[in-house]
Each structure stands twice: as structure tokens, then as C-alpha cells.
Computed example of a mutant assay.
Amino acid sequence: MGNYTFACLKVAAQLDIAGLINEGYNTSAALAEKLQLSNKGMQLYLLALHHLGYVNIEDQHYTNSELTENYLNKSSPYYWGEVLLDPFAIYDINHLDKKILTSLKREYELECKGHSVTDMWQQGEMDSDSAAAFTHLMHSQGFASAVTAASKGMFSPVKTLLDAGAGSGTIALAFCDTYPERSALLFDLAPVCEAAKEYVQKFKKAEQITIVKGDLFSAEWPKGFDGICFSNVLHDWLEPVGQSLVEKAFCLLPSGGYIFIHDMLYDEKRLTPSLFSFHLYMNHGAQLFSEPELYKLLVNAGFKAPQTHPSLGYFSVISAKKR
């Protein structure tokens, strides 16, 4: 029955159940009439959402739980609909068995328009539609943890932060919101930067955040920062590529500067990190890095005394200083 869990959440995003309940369609009959669906089916569906923790029920009336207001309400900064609507069909249950078997044959298939997303990243050939879809998806997935990390003071030693391979700029946005007097640089491929402008404008951070278009692997990186963060970046690449990116960061940082790695950490004793690592393998032939593996990358590059700071859920920030 576990297959229904994610499917129920996808349908909640597709129908905007959270928004309709907030508009006053707070009975199964009202929702069924509004959506032209079965009342009995709606009752059973809402009961499933209730048991999953997304809907409260009292006297046959429904209200959204705190979980729903945070992650299924379109007006929430932490809205997860961009993940649940699944623009790349990453989580299609009818396809996952084939995807698993294909990846075990060393054929990786996160594709858009017939092209490998990994290849588009590395070759700097991401088209605007693919970039926008992936940027929105990754923003939904990572923003809540970025805000948590910044609010806990993990980036406090830094005055100007480079968000490298930034996507929507989740780290840059959270950093600038926590420190209104500081600034950030958002660095990514040109089509991604176009999508990121929406978030910079939405959160009114244009005076603090400078957007710099460029490729992590071939372009000259921006200068003038004393901190650099890779947020959900290194896990898309094998160790040699991760090592080269960390080494480049070391060379560009001034003495006393900091590096930050914001990511889920691999832990073979826990289900979710194990599944997410396998998910990355299926998509890119990559993997999550464990804490010891990331420490090794940092020390090999010349950084001193790496530290781990738990963020939200399974996510953490690893920091280290250039002496």
C-alpha cells in the first residue's frame, strides 16, 4: 500500500487541495462538487491524507495541517508542489522498476527532451525550459533546509557568499535574508540564472544578490567573496569531479575564507539517505557523499578542521576554513 503515499501527495498538488480547503471548500461534498468528482471517493481520499498527516478532520470538516500549510500551500515559500508535480517523471511508479534495472546496467537516464541532464550541465548546454523546470524542482527540495542552516548561524563568519552552481539561489536567498547588511553572488549556467531571477525578485533581494552567468567547469568564477557554498551540487558528480571543484574553491578563497557543503549525508544505516544515494546513481551514475568522504575532499584540497552542522531533516552543512 506504500505506493499510494506519494501518489496521494501528487494528486493533492495537482488538485490544489490545500488551496481549496483554505478557500472554504472544507467538506468532502463541497470539494467533490467544486472538482466534479465522487463524494464517496473524496471522503476516502481525504481520510488517507488525514492519516498521512496533511489534513485535520473535525465534525466532517477539513482543515490543513501545519505540514500542509508549509509544503502544499502554493503561497508558502517552502511549497513542494514543484517536486510533487514531477516535471521529469522521476518518481513515476510505472517506470521505476525499469529505471532501477537500467541503472544497474550502468545506463543512467535523467533526461529532458531526449538528452542527458548530466551531460547538459557539464557541457553548458541546458535549454531554458529544462533549466526552469529543474531550478523550480530543486528550489522546492532545498529551500527549507537552506533557511534553517542560515538561521542557525552556519554562515555567520562570511560577509560575501558565493552560491556556486546555485540553481534558484536557495543558499544566497537564505543568507541575505538572515544578514540584510551582507551580500551574495549567485553563479550558474545562463538559462538557470534566468529562472533564478524570479526568486531574487520574489524575495526582494536584488540589492544584495548579484547574478553571475557561467559554467562551473569552463568559465571564470566571480571574485570578491570570503565564503563559498556548494548546495546539492557535489552529489551529482563522481569523486574526482567533486575534488576538482573543492580544490578550485580553495584556490579562489582568501586566507581565512570558508567553504560550505550543504547536502544530505550518506549513511548506510538509514533508509532515506540510502534511497536518495541510489536515486542519484540511477539519474547520473553519482552518489551521496558521507561525512568522512567530504572531510577527505576538503582536507586533500588544503582546508583545515572540517565540521558538521545538522540542518533540517536529513540535511547538514559541512564547513571548513582556509588558513
Rank of each mutant, 00 (worst) to 15 (best):
S156H: 02
K202R: 12
V158D: 02
S156Y: 01
S103K: 05
L173E: 09
S140Q: 06
G165I: 00
T178D: 05
A206N: 14
L162S: 01
S145D: 09
E207H: 15
A133T: 02
V200A: 08
A206P: 11
L84F: 11
A131T: 00
R106V: 14
A164E: 06
I90F: 11
G124S: 03
L173K: 06
V192Y: 09
L110H: 10
P87T: 06
V212K: 04
L173C: 09
L110V: 13
T170I: 01
C176T: 13
Q201T: 11
S156K: 01
K113I: 07
I211Y: 13
M138A: 02
L96S: 05
K205M: 12
A196Q: 15
I171A: 03
V200F: 08
F134E: 01
D97Q: 04
P157I: 08
S168R: 04
V117M: 14
L216P: 00
L104I: 12
I211R: 08
L162H: 07
I90S: 12
F175L: 10
C176F: 13
L110P: 15
E198M: 10
A149D: 00
Y91R: 10
A144L: 05
F155M: 04
T118K: 15
W121A: 03
H95D: 15
G114E: 12
L85P: 00
L161W: 00
I90A: 12
I211Q: 02
C112W: 14
P180T: 12
K204Q: 13
A144S: 07
T170S: 11
P191S: 10
S145T: 03
Q141Y: 01
V200R: 09
T102Y: 09
E109G: 14
L189E: 08
E107N: 15
T170W: 06
A144I: 01
K113L: 10
L186P: 01
L162Y: 01
T148I: 07
K213I: 14
D129W: 05
T178N: 13
A184R: 03
Q122V: 09
G114Y: 14
K152C: 00
Y108K: 15
L173G: 09
L161D: 06
T135H: 02
K113D: 15
K213P: 07
D92Y: 07
K159P: 04
L84V: 08
H95Y: 07
E125F: 05
A144M: 04
D129P: 07
I100S: 09
R106E: 15
V192E: 05
A146G: 00
T160F: 09
I209H: 05
L85I: 03
G214V: 06
